[in-house]
Amino acid sequence: MNKILILLTAAIIAAIIFLVPPIKGLGDLAKIIFFHVPTAWVSVIAFFASAFFAAKFLRTSNFSFDKLSERAARLGFIFVLLSTISGAIFSKLTWGAYWNWDPRQTTIFILILIYGAYLTLRAAVADEKVRAKVSAIYSLLSILTVPFLVFIIPRMYFSLHPSPVLNSSGRIEMDSIVLIVLIAAVVDATLIFIQLMRRDFK
């Protein structure tokens, strides 16, 4: 599995460098978008995974679920940082500023805060049984904010962010080669996340 993933990742990087046409007026660095979108996707997936395992832990008191919840959060934290940095670079290239509180930037920033709060809480509780319970409860409490933030934030912050791949009109406004590479990159990142989650748990 590891070898396949390394090959896939290498193939995608090659495709991004050689196959994908340069983005008009933005230069080659703008291809960082192929890194940004998959890492953003994984950081959201990891957030839900962490909460899912937290709920599993509270139901069963099985500490391996606590370990999984923690691992998902740690990975999610790394991915959200990578995504934020790559996003800020892309933002500088396209809008001329690293940061401008665009709805998606706001959302990802809140995700950083939640991940950070969760990991700080884990670090602050010494007793491992208590730590597992307390952090699982916080994980579930924080996920409640998601539907509300998804609803509130776009109303409060004006967006310059490019439309999602599938926008509301249902039309795909991309070269098919770009789209294929992007989807492959998202799948690749998701598989890398799953593989990192499975480590030591076989």
Binding site: I110, L113, T120, L121, V125, Y138, T145
Partner: peptide, 28 residues
Amino acid sequence: TAALTTSATVKGGLFPILLFPVTLPIFL
């Protein structure tokens, strides 16, 4: 949140860190 932080051994500043993200849908 106060009930969660009671069991923490390191408390300084922990409470607002935990409370803020959870109450954002109110503040905005």
